[in-house]
Design a protein around this nucleic acid. Structure first.
Length: 926
RNA sequence: GGGCGCAUAGCUCAGUUGGUUAGAGUGCUGCCCUCACAUGGCAGAGGUCGAAGGUUCAAGUCCUUCUGCGCCCACCA
């Protein structure tokens, strides 16, 4: 069936059609064009494992609005698409798949496992890209990148080596966040703290006293220590993780704490392990917390680690990487950490060493990928020294070179940047960029930390001793260590390769390669720094901050000038939408039920600048209804068009009031939409367009236009306004606007409206006369509709109306009389300047120069009308009194701007004039 | 513990640098299938702008305090 005849818009077909066209890589391909200004956005690369959720939908709608807007404005607009290899997440997906076959990655081995991941990527990795296309994302699809692309990987390795050579990358044993499930180290940002209801366990640690001696007689049958406990015989420590006591190597107290001062240096017998440890003094201990005595577990707590370093304590690691206690945990070896906790508590109770248990809320780190409680774990990892990198990144934001929208996020950024910690970048997984680090076995024999080789290419031998006994580090790099290069590595940076990395060997091939790199360098120079980065606030630390540091460090220039942070999408109850909560609204379902334009429109209309978005499915009905409105208004215009009407040849000479009014409104809307978009106020822009299209254009202009729909010039104006409005709406609702536009007569057209020019705002003087007249028309219509309603006059019944105005306006008002008659279904309309008042009528005073009478012989309830008039007069008198009060206030007249004062004076005059007139009306009834 | 945000119509939220009578969507009530659209049209009801102070000629808007939510950060075990 012909779409043009369908009274209901059917998005499915339409969207499929345009998705196909826009996916053609040539359509939105951007290149270096010195004649145009560049405008570039790099997409926050979704995970290859990603499936489109509302957050993506919002994020990408915003970017698409920006890029389509700038493209139409004549910028060379590039939206760089791509995906992120998402190390842990992707590895988890494939491991889950393996688990179904009762396999784990070690069964396959590294090489085969990676083959498997690549295979998974080839099969499923483009899901999210297809979904972005379905959203209408106008990316340059010829440039799709992946963080594990060969070229991209060169950049990642290059950056590692550069930083290492500058001394900004180091390796060492530190307490890091360890996820026992994923079995890898995590950066601090990857282990967010969540509050848990836990316990604070108060444990008695017996002091080694002369009378607490080894009782040799029971040596084999019972525990070897004779705990004769009295108040002075033990010290109580409080802990939330009793299982770590197995690795305790000291108890610490504050040196100023009088309670324990005399015990500093005393020995303790660590219960359960029967190890002798010492009481030490350290300022870090808070006297007020718990008992003021702290167990020190240097291998399992970041604070204790520092204490251990300063006091030269032993580091006892009691746990395997999977969270199972090891041989150093004595009797508890083989138990899971939480299982051990319970067992230890029981054992302590049994030995009467547990003084008490208090409920205690505390924040515990969780793996951001699998939500397992992370373990502070001592291990050898690679780190980036961040302080030197943070300096230029701080400056760039402080000086305003990079602006955050909304501004408040700047503080969050600065605070993090000022307190930056070193970045743990090694991960004990297989999927990712393997560290470009090798170790020489022979050198390591001499010293453990010797024999480290960092190189862009795999070395054949140890450069120090020439040994061929070298092996590569098993670890891969944090995924963010690749994505922080996204704004420039996607252009092919660094455009060079170490000779042995170059696969092409003939000189001809090398020339081609060099030429390609030259081209890409030019592109980078043209598009970098990019313009706007749009993302969610959660990503500030992970990505935004690090991109700024990387841009400053490797490009010498910030990566973007504006950061737009949109809200988090939440459900009706304010919870973050997530799969695990089952509260998410699937954008694909919304697309299916209401259409992509509806999804985009509603999402943007709801999302005020940067505030969180509370969603329920009904919210998308507004978008659907609006799509339908646009569809039908267009359909109406289209079905009335005569041959030869283009919307491009309006006869300026014969424009009517309504024509001039709608053109002026359109012009004004254009200006305001631009202003809103330039300020990242997307909801404002979309609401302006909604109001203009629905209320000004459809409710008023279209209804008036029906009167003269056969006239060519009316059709010209209709088509003109429609075309311009479709252009304005296009960034927000790309599908329906492209579809309708393709059906409209055009002198010339591109293959998509996306390539047409943005409407130009004309700096005309606003036609005040026209605006005033149209607002009078509207007021008259409102009043007459209300009166009809009030008197229960059928909406279709013809009425007689008299309008009173002053001589100065009579002529103008007469030019609008046709419109008024048409809109209010008036049979007889009389415009008079005589002061006489009409008795048998309902009247309404619109302002001091205009009164409308609905003439209804015998129908008027005189008593009621007198009452109503009285009320109205009182109301106006009240207002006038207030104004008089205000104007007699000397301070107001003195301090307020003269504009405001004269405005108030004018209003008072108007009120007084209206009161006078109404009193005249009232007296006519007497 | 530190920082940030929010509180406006039944619900979800707008409200720009302080300036007449505070808006939208949705829901509700009433009337209309009028030949673009019932995913529609018309009209209506509904707000002491969280509380208390303060600044000002003027406060939803600025300041202080309080209350209630929400978020982020943080090594009190």
């Amino acid at each position: 069936m012909n779409q043009e005849l369908m009274p209901q818009y059917n998005p499915k077909e339409v969207e499929e059609k345009w998705t196909a066209l826009w996916s053609d890589p040539s359509v939105f391909h951007a290149t270096v064009d010195p004649k145009k200004k560049p405008y570039c956005i790099v997409i926050p690369p979704p995970n290859v494992t990603g499936i489109l959720h509302m957050g993506h939908a919002l994020n990408n709608t915003i970017q698409d609005i920006l890029i389509r807007y700038r493209r139409m404005q004549g910028y060379e607009a590039l939206w760089m698409p791509g995906t992120d290899h998402a190390g842990i997440a992707t590895q988890n997906v494939v491991e889950r798949q393996l688990a179904k076959e009762s396999l784990n990655r070690h069964d396959l081995g590294r090489k085969d496992f990676l083959k498997r991941v690549w295979h998974w990527k080839e099969e499923h990795g483009s899901t999210i890209i297809h979904q972005l296309k379905r959203m209408g994302a106008s990316c340059d699809w010829s440039r799709e990148r992946f963080t594990m692309d060969e070229d991209y990987s060169v950049a990642v390795i290059d950056v590692f080596v550069r930083l290492y050579e500058k001394g900004l990358i180091y390796r060492g044993d530190y307490i890091i966040n360890w996820c026992p499930r994923c079995q890898t180290a995590l950066a601090d940002e990857e282990a967010p703290h969540h509050e848990l209801e836990g316990n604070l366990y108060y444990i008695k640690y017996p002091l080694k006293q002369p009378h607490v001696s080894r009782s040799t007689s029971h040596a084999k049958s019972k525990k070897t220590i004779d705990y004769r406990l009295s108040t002075i015989d033990y010290i109580v420590v409080a802990t939330t993780r009793p299982e770590t006591m197995l690795g305790d190597t000291a108890v610490a107290v504050n040196p100023k704490d009088k309670r324990y001062k005399h015990l500093i240096g005393s020995k303790i017998i660590l219960p359960l392990m029967e190890r002798e440890i010492e009481i030490i003094a350290d300022d870090m201990v808070d006297k007020k917390f718990g008992t003021g005595a702290v167990k020190v577990t240097p291998a399992h707590d970041p604070n204790d680690y520092l204490v251990g370093k300063t006091h030269n304590l032993e580091f006892i690691n009691i746990m395997n990487p999977d969270g199972i206690l090891n041989a150093l945990a004595g009797a508890y070896a083989g138990m899971d950490r939480f299982e051990a906790r319970e067992a230890i508590v029981e054992d302590l109770k049994e030995r009467k060493l547990l003084e008490k248990i208090e409920p205690h809320k505390h924040a515990v780190g969780h793996c951001y990928r699998c939500h397992t409680v992370v373990e502070p774990y001592l291990s050898k990892q690679w780190f980036v020294k961040m302080k030197p990198l943070s300096m230029p990144a701080l400056k760039a934001v402080k000086t305003g070179e990079i602006k955050f929208h909304p501004k408040r996020w700047m503080k969050v950024y600065l605070n993090w940047m000022e307190n930056i910690k070193d970045w743990c970048i090694s991960r004990q997984i297989w999927w990712g960029h393997r560290l470009p680090v090798w170790y020489c076995k022979d050198c390591q024999k001499l010293a453990v930390d010797e024999g480290v080789i960092v190189s862009r290419v795999a070395p054949e031998m140890c450069p120090v001793c020439g040994s061929r006994e070298i092996f590569q580090d098993e670890d891969v790099l944090d995924t963010w260590f690749s994505s922080w290069l996204w704004p420039f590595a996607t252009f092919g940076w660094p455009f060079t390769r170490h000779t042995s990395q170059v696969t092409s060997n003939t000189s001809e091939e090398k020339d081609v390669q060099r030429e390609t790199w030259n081209e890409r360098q030019k592109e980078l120079d043209y598009f970098y720094p990019t313009a706007t980065l749009a993302t969610a606030p959660e990503i500030i630390f992970f990505w935004v901050a690090r991109m700024i540091m990387a841009g400053c460090a490797f490009m010498g220039k910030v990566p973007f000038s504006d950061v737009y942070l949109h809200g988090t999408v939440r459900d009706g109850e304010g919870r973050k939408m997530s799969k695990s909560l089952g509260n998410s609204i699937d954008p694909l379902n919304v697309i299916n039920d209401y259409g992509t334009d509806a999804l985009r429109f509603s999402l943007i209309a709801i999302a005020a600048s940067g505030s969180d978005i509370f969603l329920s499915k009904e919210r998308f009905e507004q978008g659907r209804n609006f799509s339908n409105k646009i569809w039908n208004a267009s359909r109406f215009i289209l079905m009335n068009l005569k041959e030869g009407v283009t919307g491009e040849s309006i006869d300026q000479g014969t424009l009517k009031i309504q024509d001039r009014w709608i053109i002026s409104e359109l012009n004004d809307t254009t200006r305001r939409v631009e202003k809103a978009l330039d300020a990242f106020k997307f909801n404002e822009a979309v609401n302006l367009l909604f109001n203009f299209f629905w209320h000004s254009f459809c409710d008023w202009y279209l209804e008036i236009a029906k009167m003269t729909i056969d006239e060519k010039n009316t059709q010209e104006v209709l088509l003109y306004v429609l075309k311009k409005t479709l252009l304005l709406l296009h960034p927000f609702m790309p599908f329906i606007t492209d579809e309708i536009s393709s059906k409209l007569p055009m002198k010339e057209r591109h293959r998509t409206i996306a390539l047409e020019a943005w409407p130009r705002y004309e700096k005309l003087k606003t036609d005040k006369e026209v605006l005033k007249l149209m607002s009078w028309v509207q007021e008259i219509i409102f009043q007459l509709r209300f009166m009809r309603h009030d008197l229960k006059v059928a909406p279709t019944a013809k009425i007689s109306v008299r309008l009173w105005t002053r001589q100065a306006f009579k002529e103008k008002l007469e030019t609008a009389s046709g419109m008024i008659k048409h809109l209010a279904l008036i049979e007889n309309l009389e415009i008079t300047t005589h002061e006489e008042v009409v008795k048998n009528s309902l009247s309404a005073l619109i302002d001091k120069d205009l009164q409308v009478y609905l003439l209804l012989e015998g129908l008027v309830d005189i008593k009621k009308e007198k009452e109503r008039l009285g009320c109205e007069i009182n109301e106006l008198k009240g207002q006038a009194e207030k104004k008089k009060g205000l104007l007699s206030n000397k301070n107001f007249v003195k301090s307020a701007p003269s504009e405001v004062v004269s405005k108030e004076q004018e209003r008072l005059k108007e009120l007084e004039s209206m009161i006078k007139r109404l009193e005249g009306v009232l007296s006519a009834f007497k």
